[in-house]
């Protein structure tokens, strides 16, 4: 058995998260500048709606039934939705764990929460309640798709913390959106990724791919030393140490449980296709 000397966070994931957060923030700022005629030429000035893959999901009904897009949504959103779905079929909701800037911000707030609450962090909500709350995001998904379909407007943008995060300086954000963002960020101080766990409609949709994704997270029982670090470090509180294959609908493919990160034994928790 080959045991690693130290376990560590995946630096490459942090780098990718910072890159996408910076990219989206720059595009959002450039969009505001472009509206004033001061946009930066080499950078995209697309609206946030145009580069949000969830827009491609909520417009599908209208696209199929009338051949048009929901207000403020464009072809780019549908293209992105397709690409993210392809990635999810391969690796699960890797978009949530590696790309989504709202998830990244929640993790940054979570780091502060971990310093404050230490071991109690991410374990405040009783398991019974938590388990039920985890299905709330499917209700949100159903509501958003239904309301968008019957109204032809982006109903969700008034509640969307992602939109609020990158537009708070514009005066275009509804009060409800700012409240949801505030609650999400404050909640991140006690629970890791509360929006992703309990309310994100896009996470709900992508989470379904965990049931049939091509590359799955697998735990090799023969080399596992039952240290439980994989379960303890999982931001979504999945009991990885009790599973051979992670098929939990909440997995965000962050790979923090794997032998590349927290698992101290090499080749024991891995992302793989097939048994090995």
């Amino acid at each position: 058995m080959q045991k690693k000397k130290t376990s560590k966070k995946l630096w490459i994931r942090s780098a990718v998260q910072i890159f996408f957060f910076g990219l989206i923030a720059l595009i959002a700022v450039n969009h505001s500048l472009a509206e004033e005629g001061r946009g930066i030429a080499f950078l995209s000035s697309a609206s946030l709606h145009a580069i949000c893959p969830f827009g491609g999901v909520v417009t599908l009904y209208q696209l199929v039934t009338t051949g048009t897009f929901v207000q403020k949504i464009h072809e780019s959103s549908v293209v992105l939705a397709g690409l993210v779905l392809l990635l999810a079929i391969l690796f699960g909701p890797v978009f949530c764990g590696w790309v989504c800037p709202l998830g990244t911000v929640q993790e940054w707030f979570g780091k502060l929460g971990k310093k404050i609450f230490r071991k109690r962090y991410n374990h405040f909500i009783p398991q019974k309640i938590d388990r039920v709350l985890r299905y709330l995001r499917y209700l949100v998904l159903g509501w958003v798709i239904y309301m968008t379909a019957i109204s032809g407007t982006l109903i969700f943008s008034n509640l969307d913390p992602y939109y609020a995060l990158f537009h708070f300086w514009t005066g275009e954000v509804a009060v409800t959106g700012m409240i949801v963002l505030g609650v999400t960020l404050l909640g991140s101080l006690v629970v890791e990724r509360p929006w992703c766990k309990y309310a994100c409609p896009y996470g709900a949709l992508l989470g379904v791919t965990n049931l049939f994704r091509v590359f799955k997270i697998r735990r090799k029982e023969s080399s596992c030393i039952s240290c439980n670090l994989c379960s303890e470090d999982c931001p979504m509180n999945i009991q990885v140490s009790q599973k051979k294959v992670v098929r939990d609908h909440q997995c965000i493919s962050c790979l923090e449980c794997t032998s590349e990160a927290v698992c101290p034994v090499a080749d024991t928790v891995v992302l793989s296709i097939g048994e090995k």
């Binding site: 995946l10 490459i12 590359f215 891995v270 097939g274």
Partner: peptide, 13 residues
């Protein structure tokens, strides 16, 4: 077949 984080990152990008 195993997939490590670096290769997955390249595929994602």
């Amino acid at each position: 077949m195993k997939m490590n984080a670096r290769i997955m990152t390249i595929v994602v990008l």
